[in-house]
């Protein structure tokens, strides 16, 4: 089964590991992702000022093109892309003004009926966590995993529909299906400081410290995320604040480990906090 897929600009270059591990792991599970023939950056942030339709154009164009693939679904994995595409899709579907203005501007006729899906939703609904449990080895058994959703996946709840805005559960169920143990992690939907890494580095350093402390308090051996910017911020500020040396992996890398995919296909080399201990556990 091949599903239309939007990798996004960061996955094309800096977060190639997220792209590679997502494609590799889903392929093993029988879900082939086929990249859209043409795409641009999604715009990265959803415009919060009313009537700022120009800020939605990039995403609307991507959605309109994806709809032409005829599958009815669009998969995207980066938390920013998922957030923006899903919200713009919601606006096109539910607001006559947004639909009319965006279609007029783009000379398209898109109705917002696409389903924008995160791979975690595919794993839950297409593969099934029960079936996933039967596919993985025992390598991650008992591994304590902090599920870091960050700010983009679950808010605003009415548009993202990703579970409770401050206590979503899909990633924990995913971890349990892999044989791991979701760690108590009170910072799971807190923000890492996001793009303020370019403007207020101190703010990001502070939030990263909080996140590592909370993960360590829950006994986490690894933090997983689906956001390249969370991953970057956590690793970039890790040296000062990550005293327990908790590695920060993409959820798809953890899935790849559980599925015993060779690590050179998962982009796991050369990281600050070495996941080797985790991998050794998985190889045992």
């Amino acid at each position: 089964m091949s599903i239309p897929y939007f990798p996004g600009c960061t996955l094309h270059v800096k977060a190639k590991a997220l792209d590679d591990s997502t494609r590799a792991a889903l392929a093993v599970l029988g879900l082939e992702l086929s990249g859209l023939p043409e795409w641009t950056c999604c715009g990265t942030v959803f415009p919060l000022a009313r009537n700022n339709y120009i800020g939605m154009v990039a995403s609307a164009r991507i959605l309109a093109n994806a709809a032409k693939q005829g599958d009815g679904r669009l998969v995207t994995v980066c938390s920013f892309c998922y957030h923006v595409l899903k919200r713009v899709n919601h606006a096109v579907r539910n607001s006559d003004e947004a639909r009319t203005k965006l279609n007029d501007y783009l000379e398209e006729d898109y109705d917002g009926q696409l389903r924008v899906l995160h791979p975690l939703e595919l794993l839950r609904d297409e593969v099934g966590f029960g079936a996933l449990r039967n596919r993985v080895g025992a390598g991650l058994k008992g591994t304590r995993v902090a599920c870091y959703y960050g700010c983009m996946l679950s808010r605003p709840a009415a548009e993202m529909d990703f579970g409770d805005p401050e206590d979503p559960a899909v990633m924990e169920k995913f971890v349990a299906a892999l044989g791991g143990e979701p760690a108590d992690f009170s910072w799971k939907t807190k923000c890492c400081g996001s793009y303020q890494v370019l403007n207020e580095q101190g703010l990001v350093a502070g939030r990263v410290k909080d996140i590592f402390q909370a993960a360590a308090a829950g006994g986490a051996q690894v933090i997983i995320t689906s956001c390249p910017l969370c991953q970057y911020n956590l690793e970039a500020h890790s040296e000062a604040d990550n005293h327990s040396r908790i590695p920060v992996l993409y959820f798809a890398q953890l899935l790849g480990i559980a599925l015993e995919i060779p690590i050179n296909k998962l982009g796991l080399a050369g990281r600050y906090a070495d996941p080797e201990a985790l991998l050794q556990g998985a190889r045992r």
């Binding site: 600009c9 942030v45 980066c78 996001s194 793009y195 390249p228 910017l229 970057y232």
Partner: peptide
């Protein structure tokens, strides 16, 4: 240094907001 390192999404989002 930071330009060589930072993910593209940070640049686009920061400039859009700030």
């Amino acid at each position: 240094e930071i330009l060589a390192d930072v993910p593209q999404m940070a640049l686009t989002s920061a400039f859009r907001k700030l």
